[in-house]
Amino acid sequence: MVAMQAVPQAAAPLLAVNGIEVIYNHVILVLKGVSLTVPEGGVVAVLGANGAGKTTTLKAISRLLKAERGEVTKGSVEYRGERIEAASPSDLVRRGLIQVMEGRHCFGHLTIEENLLTGAYTRRDGQGQVAADLDKVYAYFPRLKERRRAQAGYTSGGEQQMCAIGRALMSNPRMILLDEPSMGLAPQLVEEIFEIVHRLNREAGVSFLVAEQNTNMALRYASFGYILENGRIVMDGPADSLRENSDVKEFYLGLGEGGRQSFRDVKHYRRRKRWLA
């Protein structure tokens, strides 16, 4: 078992989620006190099985939860030191925090280029700047440039994932909440997408919070990871130590031999006190 190392948190983090509880439809309690931080310039992964609450966590941050009749009933979310639980999604996009939704959600009847341009909706810095950023997006995703006139609904899953990320980039973000980019894609494409995430992080300084079921891939590219189970964070740590952790290996990397069903049954995992709160 790896010692819980210092959460990367020298200065105030870019994003801090503090013990949030989320309820859908006034009755369904889905998140039971989730806390996590993303440092400026970091790539952080949220891992967990189906229904663990990854998407809910991301939507609670981006404020898209409201459209799903979900509500943050406890805890707080801070972005660049400011509370954002009452902000609107468009407000947050304008402030540089944008979500790429699970399942890509491109605008099917719009062309790829029109899709990208919708990402610039909140910007007020002029068409020239937007056109320059469009070129940058095409430089990251040459395939999108080839397909710029195609209706997004008729492009491949990989192209749609690139389109969704490119569209978010057009808002000139400081932080992207990326929900399951690997979903339904061939391994090679998943690798390609993560490679671009990595470049965006290094070259453009975009921070990422990535929700993934593909634990292996996510831990290769993230610097820090959190593992969610049943609406609670049951483990966290630097990515390489998580990768070496025997329980993670067993449950999420499929490397161990069976027996235990979940972290609940593992005696020696640690929870930090605040998660119990």
Partner: peptide, 15 residues
Amino acid sequence: RAVADDHQAAQSVGI
């Protein structure tokens, strides 16, 4: 047109 296609996605990009 974006909203007509997918209103949640439209919200996600800040419309």
